[in-house]
Design a protein around this nucleic acid. Structure first.
Lengths: 140, 140
DNA sequence: CCGTATCCCACGAGATACTG
DNA sequence: CAGTATCTCGTGGGATACGG
């Protein structure tokens, strides 16, 4: 899987993709043929907040994956366009997506089994006291 | 890039990989032939804290990507082993790594240009007032 | 329409101390 | 050796209000 020092470069990409909205935003851009206006993206990626959208777009722009264009029609209009570099994301994102589809079921099954095991282990004191709070889980 | 609703499944994988240490831990496991003991991992992945290591390992275990084995030698010894499912991560992780290697320079260059532009725009009031605080950024 | 500015909370993660 | 328990801090992200 590569040496442990060589992984550093990956942080850049991982930090870029791992937030809540960036990938959906990229998808929205692609859906628009590689370009979309601010609120158009917002409508396609609900329920994203303005703030988050701005943040994600700015980060993508800073890293050269999209470009911001102020349109010169009468009213204020801004269009965001995928750059060639941005389009190269399709490969790694595709790999992530592909893996997710292939193995989603296995993961869910593993989760089930894990909880069966730990629940059984926790039932040392007889019965169940309304297992309520602690279950927010498994990958966020 | 796939429809926007179909991306949900990816969150599982993204949340799994996107934290600070999980990928290095996986690399350490691979380096050990798919299995390693707790502190062996810790030594190979510095400077990870105990707490973070425990957290990452538990999450990987919960999702069926590694398994925890208590060794039955005299003293306390725990070994973590990649499962077959865990090994399938090699593909998406490889894709991320590959992209990072290929495009790292382009990204850094884009960052440079972005800052050149914004610095220039900020220099409206004549000279420079020790640009100190705001610069921590570009992908975290 | 396209943002910026605040306030607020939840969570990842380091430091540190303690247990089987 | 292999963890658990606390404290603390920084940052992501929602809600809301305001500005160009």
């Amino acid at each position: 899987m590569a040496d442990i020092k060589e992984l550093e470069a990956m942080r850049l990409l991982l930090d870029l993709l791992s937030d809540k909205w960036t990938v959906p935003i990229l998808a929205a851009l692609c859906a628009g043929g590689g370009k979309q206006r601010f609120n158009a993206i917002r409508r396609e990626v609900p329920p994203i907040s303005q703030k988050s959208l701005v943040t994600c777009l700015k980060r993508l722009e800073m890293n050269g994956l999209i470009q911001r264009h102020v349109l010169t029609t009468g009213e204020l209009a801004v269009e965001y366009r995928m750059t060639p570099l941005g389009h190269t994301l399709d490969e790694p994102v595709g790999a992530l997506l592909s893996w997710s589809w292939k193995h989603e079921r296995e993961v869910r099954k593993a989760q089930q089994e894990y909880f069966s095991r730990t629940e059984a282990a926790d039932d040392k004191s007889g019965s169940s006291t309304a297992r309520a709070l602690p279950l927010r889980l498994v990958g966020r």
